[in-house]
Design a protein around this nucleic acid. Sequence first.
DNA 1: CAGTTATACGAAAACGGTTTCGTGTTAATA
DNA 2: TATTAACACGAAACCGTTTTCGTATAACTG
Lengths: 341, 341
Amino acid sequence: MKKKITLKNIARELDVSISTVSKALKNSEEISRDTKERIQAFAKLYNYKPNNIAVSLKNKRTKNIGVIIPDIVHHFFTTVFRGIEKYANDRGYNVIVCVSDESFDKEVINMEMLANGSIDGFIMALSAETQLKNDFNHLKEVTEQGIPLVLFDRITDEINCDKVVINDKQAAYMAVKKLIDNNRKRIALITTESYLNVSEKRANGYYAALKDHGIPVDESLILKLPYQFEEEEESAKFFDTREMDAVLSVNEIFAIRCMRHATLKGLRIPEDIAFIGFTDGILSKFSNPRLTSVAQHGEQMGAKAAEMLIGKIESDMEEGEETYRTEVIEATLIERESTVN
Amino acid sequence: MKKKITLKNIARELDVSISTVSKALKNSEEISRDTKERIQAFAKLYNYKPNNIAVSLKNKRTKNIGVIIPDIVHHFFTTVFRGIEKYANDRGYNVIVCVSDESFDKEVINMEMLANGSIDGFIMALSAETQLKNDFNHLKEVTEQGIPLVLFDRITDEINCDKVVINDKQAAYMAVKKLIDNNRKRIALITTESYLNVSEKRANGYYAALKDHGIPVDESLILKLPYQFEEEEESAKFFDTREMDAVLSVNEIFAIRCMRHATLKGLRIPEDIAFIGFTDGILSKFSNPRLTSVAQHGEQMGAKAAEMLIGKIESDMEEGEETYRTEVIEATLIERESTVN
DNA sequence: CAGTTATACGAAAACGGTTTCGTGTTAATA
DNA sequence: TATTAACACGAAACCGTTTTCGTATAACTG
């Protein structure tokens, strides 16, 4: 087992001081060509690499960014994460992920763990429970300590920081408009309990589109399902007892499940009933029929978030007046078999 | 902006030495009750938390584990990751993820970045390219430095370390046997190019099952598709030109796509043709019909990997004779609509 | 030749902790 | 009363870097 070599080792072997070695390896002008070459050759031979931890301690920069998301087994978060990771890696940053599991407590614990020097900044999407509790003290603490924070998708207005969102309301509006243009009259909305920020925005887009096109809102066509629903009774019953010719769903899974109900009921998609879902994930692409879906461009969102965060981290030095931005990623409608024919 | 408080600050404020503060906060017997209470109260008031980086440097333990996977937008890896993260978090470890993107070079770079002190050990699944190249020097370097390593799923025999796999061959055998018992005669295999370790094992299970049941292998019923296949011509043609009554697919996506071909061709599932896929992911659960699938229990696999790694990390102190294990996770067949009726 | 200036390097502090060891004070023991 | 032990704390080394500053030597200047 060959242990990692340190500056001290090199210094002793070559009979120079640690500072000389350090400078030589950084190609400092202060050191003579001869000495530099000797030291660099030796370092290369023994494959010297500086110890990240020591460098971090000295520089007060870890080159790590902390990502806290509610769930990792979730296509959208996963694509966002990919965007973050790619951008960050290209800039020499590593990513530490913590999963809050939609739990407030875990979110708090994770943040605290990471905030004690492990990372230079946070990127996160709030857990469902946090949004429900409306308690953001952990975020406040972090920002007050001067740790940069970027929120994405599941955000809050209570905290002053950089944010990245998609234009949920307009996207929903656009989707509903597409259905209306397609001559659909009775458009249902399948959504979650309303504490989820994004669901609400999407619902608002739905309402607005109906209103603008003179279609009265029929509350009986709105179904709220628990976020993690497993049993199907409720949604099945909904389809058995309502008449509709189109469905907008705030996520993929609800849409897929409901397409199934419709099919079992003997309806043809899209002839009798059209479906549009949110989150253009793997299910939309591979469902049968393929689901028309609002693409959230998670990867782009992640890249943007990482860009904003790293920007803040690296400009922090100058410590100018803090100014925060909210970037909006434009959602796009991917049309597939569940609407057109 | 209130900066983090350090031992030194506390020491100065309370007019004691740094060592006294450090000991007091650890509730050391060496310090008097009075002093301890004073210090602890002060620390609590100012919300003192030790700096992780400093502790890491001193202890030569980061409490971070590095995870390197080929792809994060992939249900299986994602579930494994969840298992790792949960187990690790419960033990006070954080997880740094790097994505190799199936690229050898990225895998190497990522490992090197992390190996310089950032992590206490690695958990990884090899990239496709690494398996293709058969070059494992980066792994060797790491293990030679005494950094614990656990490989999962995409492993190699060339490296001596802990490993976690599923019984791919037996699982495939079991799946095929199920089809045979179900009176299927012409069973196709849809697989990837063979450099992927796991595909090969699954194919071997397929061959073995056919052989044991006296069914001759018909090479024309074996379709090899590129790992990331986008166009559908090849698979569609396969279904147009072959007669078969069952399909085993080494992954979910291939199975789902092929079910679609079969349906379009007018075949009824499972009456005319049965399907079994590998990787019981989200597609299997939500496809129509729902896909019978070999569950790989990713989360369990991740937890086991994390358990093995952390075990090694924390026992490293004793530095006994190195002994490596390979744990096998038992795959199970989840029967759904694509086989039974 | 005295004084200045490069040149090339080393000593030491610093980052924020942990830990070993030494020591002054007080209390217990002989 | 002298000796020892217990107690409570501080000094300092250490982890592996970076960086500032000081300085010996040699070379140059007037």
